[in-house]
Design a binder for these strands. Structure first.
Length: 285
DNA sequence: AAGATGGTCAACCGCCGTCCT
DNA sequence: TAGGACGGCGGTTGACCATCT
């Protein structure tokens, strides 16, 4: 199926919006809402395509748009979120009230990318801390080309693992990196025979849990059945409170983002979580 | 003073997923 | 179930402005 362009070029205006057009669009949306962007310009009397109207509203006219420069705190947040999420601008924007994905994307490319690159040169490695309830000696984690293998072994004591930035789903080359990050940004365990030490985490592991009725919690039998490095009875070991199960792939990215946040950032995350996130991100490519 | 270069950012393009018929 | 309509997203473009040479 070949799609027609989003708007007929004939008779429809393009380019910068005038003050008059802004006023028309703003008052129309405030009065009637925007249930149908395609029909909106006609209803409002604008010589624009619906997409253009939507973009103008979302990126400029929306009343909750925050104007002005980004604060240091906002910039740090973007850097951190980008490290975790890659070029998922809309997700990043959803965590920065009043900021649009377009704005964040621009700031990233014009300011933050350079800063991250500079910092990257002085900080050659990023690390995640692996909790000591994992049990493995001499674990060495590195980048992997095997982007779809969600299995992971553990570690012993407090080991450190290299962590690469999560690449974009569609443009790996644009991801900031210090040097030799591979295209997947995933992690694997080297120099161990994981099958001897840890159970492989298969897809069943991430399936929907059996729930206790009306509790919103997984059943104890479900938890008991889990072969997870966290003691399921100790929720403090599982900062997201997810007890080792994951939602289905389609609706899970936000779940994992929340997990990152709740767990206090990437440094506190069990590597299993990161692997699962990477795996799901890869699924979406 | 003027052209070259680089930075910024609003807007556009094309793809994709979802919804609806 | 197929296919069209639509919204949303990320990548890219190009106009405008500031600074440099």
């Amino acid at each position: 199926m070949v799609r027609a362009p989003c708007c007929e070029k004939m008779g429809l205006k393009r380019g910068p919006w005038t003050v008059e057009e802004d006023q028309i669009l703003k008052s129309h949306v405030q009065k009637y809402g925007h249930s149908n962007w395609r029909a909106l310009p006609k209803q409002a009397g604008l010589q624009r395509c619906g997409k253009s109207c939507r973009l103008r509203w979302v990126n400029y006219l929306r009343p909750d748009i925050k104007r002005g420069n980004f604060s240091d705190e906002e910039e740090e947040t973007i850097i951190k979120l980008h490290e975790m999420l890659g070029n998922r601008w809309s997700v990043i924007a959803s965590r920065l009230p009043g900021r649009t994905d377009n704005e964040i994307k621009n700031v990233w490319h014009t300011h933050l990318l350079k800063r991250v690159k500079q910092n990257g040169e002085s900080k050659p490695e990023k690390h995640i801390r692996i909790p000591d309830y994992c049990h493995l000696n001499d674990t060495k984690l590195s980048q992997s080309e095997d982007s779809t293998n969600p299995t992971l072994s553990g570690c012993k004591n407090m080991e450190y693992a290299q962590m690469s930035p999560q690449p974009s789903s569609s443009d790996h080359s644009s991801v900031t990196d210090t040097s030799e990050t591979n295209s997947t940004g995933l992690i694997k365990v080297e120099n161990i025979d994981s099958s001897e030490i840890y159970p492989v985490i298969d897809e069943d592991f991430w399936s929907e849990p059996e729930m206790v009725e009306n509790s919103g919690m997984p059943s104890s039998s479900f938890l008991d059945d889990l072969q997870f490095p966290f003691p399921s009875s100790d929720s403090s070991m599982d900062p997201a409170g997810c007890y080792g199960y994951g939602p289905k792939v389609d609706d899970s990215m936000d779940f994992w983002y929340n997990l990152f946040i709740k767990s206090g950032g990437i440094e506190e995350l069990p590597v299993q979580y990161l692997q699962r996130y990477n795996y799901l991100a890869d699924e979406r490519i």
